[in-house]
Design a protein around this nucleic acid. Sequence first.
RNA 1: CGGGGUGUAGCGCAGUUGGUAGCGCAUCUGGUUUGGGACCAGAGGGUCGCAUGUUCGAGUCAUGUCACCCCGACCA
Length: 492
Amino acid sequence: MAKEITPRAENYSQWYNDIVVKADLAEQSAVRGCMVIKPYGYAIWEKMQSILDKAFKETGVQNAYFPLFIPKSFFSREAEHVAGFAKECAVVTHHRLMNDPYGKGVVVDPEARLEEELIVRPTSETIIWSVYKNWIKSWRDLPILCNQWCNVVRWEMRTRPFLRTAEFLWQEGHTAHATAEEAQAKAEQMVQVYAKFARETMAMPVIVGHKSPNERFAGALDTLTIEAMMQDGKALQAGTSHFLGQNFAKSFEVQFADKEGGLQYVWATSWGVSTRLMGALIMAHSDDNGLVLPPALAPIQVVMVPIYKTDEERDAVLAKFEAIGKALEAKGVSVKIDSRDTLRPGFKFAEWEAKGVPVRIALGARDLAAGTVEVARRDTLEKATVSLEGVDAYIEDLLGKVQQNIYDKALAFRDANIRKCDDWEEFKTEIQKGGFLLCHWDGTAETEQAIKDETKATIRCIPVDSCVCEEEGKDIYSGKPSKGRVVFAIAY
RNA sequence: CGGGGUGUAGCGCAGUUGGUAGCGCAUCUGGUUUGGGACCAGAGGGUCGCAUGUUCGAGUCAUGUCACCCCGACCA
């Protein structure tokens, strides 16, 4: 039977890890802080990639690829940027191994030291801007709209599967524009692409907003974010889009000749989402039976489990499944017939539920005689007996309902856990319960830091699309005047 | 890097006062089963993280060391 997850359970961390293992998404690797993404988990990531990639291209973005290694000197050019990443970089210092002269095994050849160390990219702004310098001469070369799908490495002190791994997969878009307005608009456009993807594909409600100066990306003038709420009430930053101003252009001397014959620095953006989205997906929707996948991201949308006693029954059921499968595939639905002969139906039900397959159909001799089929949906765990006639249309419709229901459920949960708060003492206890608190903030970094030090809560964002936040008030901590409410939460 | 914890079969664990290395799951064989994680019978599988010490004898005691996990600080 359905077991609801207990929000904000003590063992939430364990619950999350269990889902990752039970759904066969990933496993811990022998390499520190890195994980192995297994085929099923990777298939979900591939679906995310293809949908995002299409959305990017619709905005005029093209894919490209830049080097994994970045010469150390590139990092010294943008001081603020390097300050944000220096503490977590993997550094290549040598290029050769040799047999250990004193014993077995292999050691680094001390003769093979690199003249200049190479940094394994933690993000590619520096290498890309060193390349863009050569691409950009004239206003006619702009805008440049490139994205790359790649891996990056950040030597985090503490890691968690998908949410924070030493190596992770992501996309990073880097654009160059002639004007500040155009760049700012691009940054806003891309954060809306992410928000649409989160809501419509991941079935995950998000709040779009600006980061406070403290929480901004290193080197950015403005950072836009999508903030999601996990089932334990904690916030998760699911994607960011940065307006970089002319900082990188100036550091890497990227200038263009404008229409008036003058020389100007270009304006830049960068934006990215990572395999952290997988973590968001897991924590936003899963229950105690395992993963719950929105149909739009499910590698298998419909699984078919045959029930039989004899070979004749088996053949009859599988033949029927083939027919239903063809009809569904014609509608663009991905199906899987679980014809494994060594496992019992009950085992298969549990296994596919753990993997989050949105719809399961079961068919046995009893159904064949009655002309019916059992259809079960993963989100509610409800089962229905429907006519075999037109079952493909029924399922196509059901998939849409499941997608919508998963979103509605997540939205209802989030909205139930967003509340206004105007009293500091109340804030201190309320924030520990999880959820988002809408509070007045005086706009100073000092207040933000003081609140963080006392409660661990951070300003997740200053919402751009929520009118409730635009009202006069007094800062929750300092009591100074405030122009609007911001979102406070404890975050992953 | 601070605070806590764990290392014993593929996974999860027990192992008492130091005295033949155990259990559950998984795997393999055979049979019966199959509409919600099957059952019976049998079998295989271990350098007890590593090193040193104490001892007639160490999974167990001591010292050291390594690895991993959890909680912080840092972060997508």
